[in-house]
């Protein structure tokens, strides 16, 4: 099968840093995979995610389908949903939940066009899926950490991505929400969505996940495929 995303000897150095935060990463991700990345703090997990969607400039070659990240970054990002590790917004932020979820689609809708009824429907569905539809008129600055996390996931889904990059999506969630989110991700994956997720504690890896990548000091130290989760 032709990989959805391929990284060939990719390294990323933050501006002003002396050593690369990820070094010579080579990785192939097939469409439909559900991958979890684990590793200690500072291992380079976040850096890897932001390198894959081109938010961080890197060396090496990254291709998504037949597109090259260096030349087609903006088009590639329209196909990838991203949920950052922690998103802070101040209490005066002048946007409500509904707006923020819709923003996830703005890139896809494109310049000079307004959201259509179909766009609003998809946004509505994304909010329902994450059970944040009751918060739709709430200013995002007034959400709890866990609520905001769910809104950010709904926002990423609203763009109907082919692939989802999730950076510690469980971190702010209570036990019940964690297992609910794990189930939801499983459903999405069963429907064909490719998922690459960073997680801190291995105990919350969903059973649907079939591949675990371990990172340490900017390198992939193990990459294991499972038929059934151990």
């Amino acid at each position: 099968m032709c990989p959805l995303i391929e990284l060939k000897t990719v390294s990323t150095v933050y501006e002003g840093a002396k050593v690369p935060s990820i070094k010579n990463i080579t990785l192939r991700i097939q469409p439909g995979e559900f991958i979890t990345i684990v590793g200690p703090n500072g291992a380079g997990k976040t850096t890897l995610l932001e390198t894959i969607n081109g938010l961080l400039p890197s060396e090496g070659v990254i291709t998504v389908g037949d597109m090259n990240l260096k030349t087609d970054g903006t088009r590639i990002r329209k196909r990838i949903g991203y949920v950052p590790q922690e998103f802070i917004c101040d209490s005066l932020t002048p946007f409500i939940v509904e707006d923020v979820v819709m923003m996830g689609r703005y890139g896809k809708i494109g310049l000079f066009k307004s959201p259509t009824r179909k766009d609003r429907y998809i946004v509505q569905e994304a909010m329902l899926f994450l059970s944040v539809d009751v918060l739709r008129r709430t200013p995002v600055g007034k959400l709890s950490g866990g609520q905001l996390q769910k809104v950010m996931i709904a926002r990423a889904l609203a763009s109907e991505p082919e692939m989802l990059l999730l950076d510690e999506p469980f971190s702010n969630l209570d036990m019940k929400s964690r297992s609910e989110l794990a189930e939801k991700l499983t459903t999405l994956n069963e429907n064909g969505l490719t998922i690459l997720m960073v997680i801190h504690d291995r105990s919350s890896i969903p059973p649907a996940c079939r591949r675990i990548i371990t990172m340490e000091q900017g390198k992939i130290v193990s990459d294991k495929h499972f038929k059934v989760m151990p």
Partner: peptide, 10 residues
């Protein structure tokens, strides 16, 4: 809202 997320969404 967020320049980084705007960039990430294409």
């Amino acid at each position: 809202f967020s320049r980084k997320l705007a960039e990430a969404s294409g």
